[in-house]
Amino acid sequence: MSILVYTENREGIFKKATFELLSYAKEMAKTLNTNVVALSIGQVENSELEKLGNYGATKVLNTQGNNLSFLDNKLFSKIVTTAVEKEGAQIIIMANNISGKALSPRVSASLKAGLVTGVVGLPSSYEPFVIKKLVFTSKAFSNVKVNSALKVLTFAQNSFGVAEPINAVAHVETFNPQINDVPVKNRLIETNRITGKLLLTDAEIVVSGGRGLKSAENFSLLEELAGVLGAATACSRPVSDEGWRPHSEHVGQTGKIIAPVLYIACGISGAIQHVGGISSSKFIVAINNDKDAPIFEIADYGIVGDFKTVLPEMIAAIKEIKAG
């Protein structure tokens, strides 16, 4: 018995979210008195794989191959289920992100393992296995009981934290499962990567603009603020619908659900659909010229004022702090 964690890399590098995922799994493994095995798929250097030991993986299964350069749901799921069988894993954990959401249901159905997506903490009980997740787009939590012996979980980023790294090297084992019989029916034509920008999923701080910013041009102020804070930029739905910002930046019920440490909402009124996407943020600052805007109901700090005066002052004040 062990806990298997699918550790995803981005262009050969493991990100903080992966370390948090392992920290979370390790904590569960301690209670269950078992080990954490990481599964890596695709081209990653050995030294990078060994790093996973710092966050609790005792072993890393390393699967590399020519056809593993882009996510194929069927193929990757088959690799995961084969690893589960090989390790006798009882709990399978993935990130509640694009690839975790793509793979976990297939793995769950294949193994007849109960699936809980978007879990926000450790199980409240192991026998029976009960774990908490967000439901109704962050308006409530559900305590879900898993009846099956095998369990698949996807973990909501930033709901546990990265553990202090320990000085340990994970044992890297080459893992070549039999996947020749899985026909790949997808052909990658083109990849477009967002370059030179901090991604929403990597950011501790997110600055976000709404319709109140009035034009695409005015987002340059927001970008400047993001720059001084080392933050990622985001927006509300009307902004991406207008084409002022790309859809990839839309946070809210129909866009991305995020949980940064600090969320700064500027010119966003705080419609219930937007709030659903950001309410798990640790700390929320709202800037709005309407003192009755609903965004202030969920904000910790608020500034009532016009963004055109508030943002430059904020940028100047932060620059001063950063300059020490």
Binding site: E8, R10, F70, L71, N97, I98, S99, K185, N186, R187, L188, I189, E190, T191, N192, R193, I194, L199, T201, S248
Partner: peptide, 12 residues
Amino acid sequence: EIDGGTETIEAE
């Protein structure tokens, strides 16, 4: 959508 971008795929 992929983590940090988009992909174009041809599927059977």
